[in-house]
């Protein structure tokens, strides 16, 4: 946000925001300062993502009514340890930043911060920010959002990490009506070309199936790797068919540079980034509150639930504030 305020174009890692209100503030900062933002859900720029998108947008699946994501489970902290003094070379206060202060614990870092709701949010916020980014992109839904969110899940019984090990989040979209399901572990579809899988190290442990009333399409992985079925790769767009966005040389950074030069929207602009991050945030909020949430996708706010609405933002520890 502060970079936007100084007029700098921004490449921001996913997930774009940690709370609903942070996302709104990021969108305002980008718009008010007329700067170009690219969010690091780079799946949208990948070659096979383009072909999958083109296939779906040109009606080859018919009306898409359901998108089911799969992803392996979030790990649990099977070796809990008591709080301790932080290492001498770690600025614990800075590491915590805006989070409420608490004593250091070895199980906060390094990469495992992902498995805490406050600092990470589990697989749904880590990889959901890739897989569901593609879903919103392919469904042309960056500027919409679900109207209800309902999560079922299993959280660890011990340890510091509190993100759901397994979870299923159902997002119901309206006008057009479709359902997005984030499922850990869900129903993994093995990648069809086992030689290529070994050769390229394809991570088939996450992806999504797009179900239409005529056919279905599998899209594997979703981040720096995206793979889809041969029928989409071989599809020839007919004359007058639907054009879909394409990053120059299928390169996410190139797309950002072009956005800076021309002023056009990047393929993963801040609105798309926030829409995706909101899915992840709302899935976790429904889980911790233990109830279905109702969402106004135009105002980007929870409706009819005062306690849930308060969790759209999180007061920040001074001076790590927006």
């Amino acid at each position: 946000m502060h970079a936007c305020q100084t007029g700098k174009h921004v490449y921001v890692e996913k997930p774009a925001c940690g709370t609903i209100e942070e996302g709104k503030a990021m969108i305002r900062a980008a718009r008010d300062n007329k700067i170009c933002v690219q969010v690091g859900s780079q799946g949208r720029s990948q070659r096979e993502a383009f072909f999958a998108h083109q296939y779906i947008a040109n009606g080859m699946l018919g009306k898409v009514h359901t998108v089911k994501c799969w992803h392996y489970a979030t790990p649990s902290d099977d070796n809990p340890v008591p709080d301790s003094e932080p290492p001498a070379d770690l600025d614990w206060d800075l590491w915590l930043g805006p989070l409420p202060w608490r004593p250091f614990n070895q199980r906060y870092l390094h990469g495992v911060f992902r498995w805490l709701l406050e600092s990470g949010g589990g697989q749904i916020r880590d990889r959901g920010a890739h897989v569901m980014s593609n879903a919103l992109h392919f469904m042309n839904a960056d500027n919409t959002g679900p109207v209800t969110i309902e999560t079922k899940g299993r959280v660890p019984t011990r340890g510091l990490w509190d993100s759901a090990i397994e979870m299923e989040v159902t997002y119901q979209f309206k006008n057009p009506d479709w359902t997005l399901i984030w499922a850990q572990p869900g129903e993994m579809v093995p990648y069809f070309d086992r030689d290529r899988l070994k050769r390229e190290g394809i991570r088939e442990g996450y992806g999504a199936v797009y179900y239409g009333d005529k056919d279905k399409l599998v899209v594997w992985v979703g981040d720096g790797q995206v793979y889809t079925e041969t029928k989409a790769l071989e599809f020839q767009k007919p004359a007058g068919g639907v054009d879909v966005p394409k990053s120059p040389r299928f390169d996410h950074h190139e797309d950002w540079f072009e956005g800076i030069k021309t002023g056009r929207k990047t393929i993963m602009n801040i609105e798309g980034g926030v829409a995706t991050a909101n899915l992840c945030v709302l899935g976790n909020l429904s889980l911790i509150l233990g109830r279905k949430l109702h969402w106004d996708p135009v105002k980007r706010e929870i409706v009819g639930d005062e306690a849930a609405r308060r969790l759209m933002s999180r007061p920040q520890r001074y001076p790590y504030t927006l």
């Binding site: 809990p80 008591p82 709080d83 011990r158 340890g159 510091l160 509190d162 911790i288 509150l289 233990g290 109830r291 009819g304 639930d305 005062e306 306690a307 849930a308």
Partner: peptide, 22 residues
């Protein structure tokens, strides 16, 4: 026991979020 203390903390969170339902 830090795991017992943590469980009590999380139990309070469960109570609060249940009580906050519409």
């Amino acid at each position: 026991d830090f795991e017992i203390a943590r469980s009590a903390k999380r139990a309070i969170e469960r109570i609060v979020r249940h009580a906050g339902r519409p």
